[in-house]
Structure formats: structure tokens, C-alpha cells
Design a protein around this nucleic acid. Structure first.
Length: 425
RNA sequence: GGGGGAAUGUCCCGAGUGGCAAAGGGGGCGGACUGUAAAUCCGCUGGCUUACGCCUUCGUAGGUUCGAGUCCUACUUCCCCCA
């Protein structure tokens, strides 16, 4: 069942598609470039993380193949909380937190979508705009009567919670109603006819499609992506440093590059298709590399993915830093740098403290343990004495000391004259 | 309304006899092996300390005790059964 539209064909070839409510119908729309598709993003953190990247890429391809993309901020729905895939209720965020999160999340979209007022320009909306103005009684009469509680109870997001005897409050139970209503509202406001999302959103999205039929919107469609895990089964996007954030202030371009560079062999092809724009025949060539040669493909993946999110320059710098550090054994000046007052350094800084200040150890005790395990290095020399003190002789000609945790994590410590405080560069 | 159970190392699951910094997993980190991969093996996984050691942790608050995760009382939350 090959798709005729460029949109579906591209998504299919690149591995984005998990389920669709009606391939033929959507294909027909896409062939005429009449798809107006949206994806909703919860505002539960100040930045999206890598788990949302596949959704963002779908919006990208939607626009690139001649259709209209809508990025929906969940400023309203986040006040309610999505129970999908959760074992327990999440604590409610304050309105202020949600607004702050929304501001942080917005930034990233400009890198992937062309916004504007034109027919094929992307737009960004916030469902707080209509959800917060709903009148409860009216909503129940106009919308609520279309929802079957029987069916909602049978949906996975609800059923699982009930089966495990886990509490599910009424507010969470309403989440899918609001999300379904969003779809209808977007249909009416901007002619939206497609909602995309992760496979865990299938139930919520289809509920929206169904509500649209009952409320007489034009035909709506649902399209979901597969759940992304690494080849060895782990959830994607967890590293030593925690979540892989998309905002550069939370997760530097260098770390981002490293994240992709450390992709498992078996995932390289899949990730190249999903997270880069490289042509498929080039990807086929890269993923066919075997043994150590596949490292070349990983570097391409890292640089391409970083370029998309952080730009050409940041990507090249990250690639250069990695090359100097890992391949040439040189001291790359662009490694993450932590500054500390020169006075503190001259007063005699213990190695333990130094590693804690650099963010490579959680506490002195942690640093001690790492030393015992042979995991800490000072200027590439393993630290063996936990009582050692950093000295001026340890400074490189450029005035920095290189601290390393394990093979991969390196930080430069730089004493500075003023009272500037240590912050990662 | 009555009866019974449960809450453990703030990542998760989960043993626990009055002497416990608290078994065991998972996850994570480090080491070895490699290719900045996977798999495998080994070590570590509360804070402070050069160290003897000190401090903080088992839902909350009290109590018994030389000593309490462990016993008693009250409270909070959750689950099960009866009504």
C-alpha cells in the first residue's frame, strides 16, 4: 500500500508511522496539499526533551511537503494533567509555572518551522486561549454529551489505572475530553484536519476524531509515531546528566552532539532517518558500515542532528571539540568550562572539591569513591591521592586544568580574577 | 460505620529477628574488554572526615527501652473485606 502523497511517503520511508485512522483518506488530502496538521505539547517543563523531537520532525516534514503545520502549546491542558502512561497522578503545576514553561518551550520551534501568515506557513496556538474560557454547563451540554463514559473506561490510559487500583481523579479523567475538544476547536478555527502524536496518544487522538464526527466537523485524521526505545530496549533520552533537553541552556550543544555520537550501532540507521534530513540512499550507505567504520555514521548523525537544533556553527564546534578530545588527545579549549575565583584556587583547592565544583562529582564522598574506582583524572593522569591539592603547575599554558570522569566526561576548570562564578560554557 | 493490611535507603521494586547505615534486585556511575557501540565480567551507589569517628535516614508526632525500621499510642495517606 504505497502512499501517493509526498507527505505520507516521506514519513513512511523514514520510519515515523505507527498507526493512522485512515491512510487512504489522509493520503488524498496530502496529495492536494490540504493537510493542516497539529501536535500538542504539554508545558510540564521549561524545555522539551528529546522524546518530543520525533513529533517536531513530523511537523517539519508536514510543512516541507507542502502542508500546514500547527504547533499547539498545551497551556490549558497542562493545568489538568494527562494521565496517559502514568502510574500515578502528577502534582498540579501552578499557572505561573506553566506560563514560564511555555515560554521556554516555544523557542525551539522556530528552528524547525517557518512561521508566518501565508497559507503554508506554520502557526503556533495555545489551547489556554479557548479552554480557560469554557463555561462548564455549556461544555457539558454541547460537548460532554458526546462522550461515552463506558468507552472512556475501556481506554488503555484509564483501564490500566483502574486495573492496578490506582487512583485517578476526575480532573485527569477529563483530560482526554479537553484534548478531543481541542481537535474540534482547531478544525473550526484554522481548518485543522490531522492530529499527530506518539503512540501513547492514539486513544486521545481518536477520541478527537470521533468527537469531530459527532460535532459535524469535516473528516479528521489521526497519525501516530512508534514509541522510541534504543535497540537494547532502554527508554530513549536518558544520560548521566539526566534528560536530554532541547534548550541549549539546559543541555549544551556539545553534550547534545555527544548524545548522538554514543548511539548504539543497531540504532544508527533508524535515527538517521528520523532525526536528520539526509537523503535515504546516503543513509543506506552510512548504516551499512560495519565494525569501527560505523563510527563515521555516528559522527554524521551527531553533527546533522546538532545542526538542525543548534545551527551549523554549534554543530561544527561540537564536532571539532570531540575530534580534538577523543581522536587527537589534544586539550580542546571549547570543552565545557567551569570558572572559579583565582583566590580560591591559590588558597589551595583540594581535588575532591575541584571535581565537585566541576560538576563531575555529586559530593566529596562521591569523588572519593570515584577515585577508589579509578574514575577520576586530572590532566589525563589518574587521581590516586584524595588529599592532593591543585597547584599552579597543573595549569595548562592557557590557564586551565582538565578534569575527567571516566572516558567521556571532561570539564575544564579555569581560575579567573574577578568574582565571576562557575558556570558551564 | 465496623474489621484487616500497607507506607523502608527521596530513582524504582523490595527483605528486615530490638543492636541497622539497614539483605537482595532493577536503574545509574566507574573499571576491565572494545570502536566514545552492544554483550560480558568486576567495583561503587546517604552526608562530613587523612583517619579513630561523627551526623542524617525506614509515612507524621509522641512514648517504652541502655538501645527502635523493628514494641506501644495518636494522626495522615493508600489498599482489602464486612455494612
Amino acid at each position: 500500500m504505497p502512499h501517493e502523497s509526498e507527505f505520507l511517503r516521506t514519513l513512511d520511508e523514514r520510519g515515523f508511522i505507527h498507526q493512522c485512522s485512515d491512510f487512504a483518506g489522509l493520503d488524498a488530502l496530502a496529495r492536494r496539499n490540504e493537510v493542516v496538521g497539529y501536535i500538542g505539547f504539554d508545558c510540564t517543563a521549561v524545555s522539551l526533551h528529546i522524546g518530543s523531537l520525533i513529533q517536531i520532525m513530523m511537523l517539519y516534514w508536514l510543512q516541507q511537503t507542502g502542508n500546514k503545520a500547527v504547533a499547539l502549546m498545551g497551556g490549558g491542558t497542562t493545568r489538568v494533567g494527562d494521565p496517559s502512561g502514568r502510574d500515578q497522578s502528577r502534582k498540579l503545576l501552578s499557572v505561573e509555572e506553566i506560563e514560564a514553561n511555555k515560554d521556554g518551550i516555544k523557542q525551539v520551534f522556530a528552528r524547525f518551522l517557518r512561521f508566518g501568515a501565508g497559507k503554508r506557513d506554520a502557526i503556533m496556538l495555545d489551547n489556554a486561549e479557548w479552554l480557560t474560557k469554557l463555561n462548564y454547563i455549556e461544555f457539558l451540554r454541547d460537548v460532554g454529551r458526546h462522550f461515552s463514559v463506558n468507552r472512556m473506561l475501556s481506554m488503555d490510559s484509564v483501564k490500566l489505572r483502574l486495573e492496578r487500583d490506582q487512583e485517578m481523579s476526575f480532573i485527569e479523567f477529563n483530560y482526554m475530553c479537553l484534548q478531543a475538544y481541542d481537535f474540534v476547536e482547531l478544525s473550526r478555527r484554522v481548518g485543522c484536519n490531522l492530529q499527530m502524536g506518539g503512540s501513547d496518544q492514539w486513544g486521545n487522538i481518536v477520541t478527537g476524531v470521533d468527537l469531530g464526527r459527532r460535532m459535524a466537523t469535516p473528516q479528521l485524521y489521526a497519525l501516530t509515531t512508534p514509541l522510541l526505545t534504543t535497540a537494547s530496549g532502554a527508554k530513549m533520552g536518558k544520560t548521566a546528566a539526566g534528560a536530554v533537553w532541547l534548550n541549549a541552556e539546559l543541555f549544551s550543544p556539545y553534550d547534545y552532539w555527544q548524545f548522538w555520537r554514543n548511539t548504539e550501532d543497531a540504532d544508527v540507521g533508524r535515527f538517521l532517518r528520523l532525526f536528520t534530513l539526509l537523503p535515504l540512499d546516503e543513509i543506506r550507505r552510512l548504516e551499512s558500515l560495519t565494525g569501527a567504520d560505523i563510527n563515521e555514521a555516528k559522527k554524521v548523525l551527531a553533527t546533522e542532528a546538532t545542526r538542525l537544533l543548534h545551527g551549523e556553527q554549534a554543530a561544527n564546534e561540537a564536532a571539532k571539540t570531540a575530534r580534538e578530545t577523543f581522536e587527537e588527545g589534544a586539550l580542546a579549549q571549547s570543552l565545557p568550562t567551569v570558572e572559579l575565583p583565582r583566590a580560591e584556587f591559590e588558597a589551595g583547592l583540594g581535588v575532591l572539591t575541584a571535581f565537585v565544583r566541576a560538576g563531575l562529582a555529586a559530593s566529596n564522598g562521591d569523588a572519593r569513591r570515584q577515585i577508589k574506582g579509578g574514575g577520576l583524572r586530572l590532566n589525563d593522569v589518574p587521581v590516586t591521592d584524595e588529599r592532593a591539592t591543585l597547584r599552579a603547575a597543573d595549569l595548562s599554558p592557557d590557564g586551565v586544568i582538565k578534569l575527567s570522569l571516566g572516558r567521556k566526561r571532561h570539564v575544564l576548570l579555569r581560575p579567573v580574577p574577578a568574582e565571576k562564578n562557575g558556570s558551564a560554557a
